[in-house]
Amino acid sequence: MKNALIAATLSTMALAGAPAARSESITVSVAGSAASVLADPKNFTGSVVVDMLLPTSLSTPASSALVSFAPGARTAWHSHPLGQMLIVTAGKGWVHQEGQERQEIRQGETVWIPAGMKHWHGATAQNAMSHYAITYIKDGKNAEWMELVSDEQYQN
């Protein structure tokens, strides 16, 4: 019965145009095997460290990183062509959708940012914050970077 269900599911996926499963090996990325990088000041304000989770040679429709913000640090305004998921791993921060009130985010919370939504995220003024960012890729691009968040925008 189980095999029949799997076969039916695969058949349905094929009819729906789903990509065929690839034959790849499991990849384990050793902690610390990729160097931490300081985030680009064109796209971030303050001290932000990015640790990529998967090697760039891995073929995947998403990028993933652990992003650590010092107090007061944040992204620039930006959007994602297919959305982004944040999983807060430490501290306290903010996420802010353009035209809305900023929202506080804390360790253990998950944030979904829909495709095309202009937003920023980062630490609060008093607390550091880290999150895993899983960002979906379309046509080789995972983000559209815009202007830096001003101190006035950040404080409100």
Rank of each mutant, 00 (worst) to 15 (best):
L82I: 08
H80D: 05
V30G: 04
A35D: 06
K138T: 11
D40F: 03
A133W: 01
W77C: 03
P41K: 05
G99P: 06
G17N: 04
I26F: 11
E98S: 12
H78I: 04
A39R: 01
I105T: 00
H78E: 00
G32N: 01
P114E: 06
I134V: 15
L15H: 14
Q107M: 15
G32Q: 01
Q84P: 05
K42S: 14
A8H: 01
H96Y: 05
W94M: 05
A39E: 02
A115H: 08
N43F: 14
Y132R: 08
V50C: 09
A20P: 07
P41I: 06
R22H: 11
A34R: 13
T135S: 07
W112R: 06
G108V: 07
D139I: 11
A16I: 08
R22M: 13
Y132Q: 12
H131D: 09
A65K: 05
G108P: 03
T45I: 12
G122N: 04
R106T: 15
S68D: 06
T45G: 03
I87C: 07
G17Q: 03
V111D: 00
E104G: 08
P41G: 05
E104H: 02
I6H: 03
N142P: 07
A70R: 05
A70E: 14
M52P: 08
S57M: 05
T124R: 00
R74H: 06
E144Y: 11
L5T: 10
F69S: 01
N142M: 10
G46Y: 04
L53D: 01
M13T: 11
Q126D: 15
P81I: 08
V37I: 15
K92C: 12
P41W: 03
V95P: 01
S63D: 14
I6S: 08
S47F: 08
A7L: 11
S150K: 06
E24S: 14
H80F: 07
S47I: 11
F44D: 01
A34F: 14
K42P: 07
Q126G: 09
A8C: 00
I105N: 00
E147R: 12
I6A: 09
L86H: 00
A128W: 02
A35T: 10
E101G: 11
L86M: 02
M85P: 05
D40C: 04
V30K: 14
L10M: 11
L10S: 11
S11A: 15
A4P: 04
A65H: 06
L54Q: 06
S23L: 12
V48Q: 00
A65E: 01
K42W: 06
P61L: 02
M1Y: 07
N43W: 10
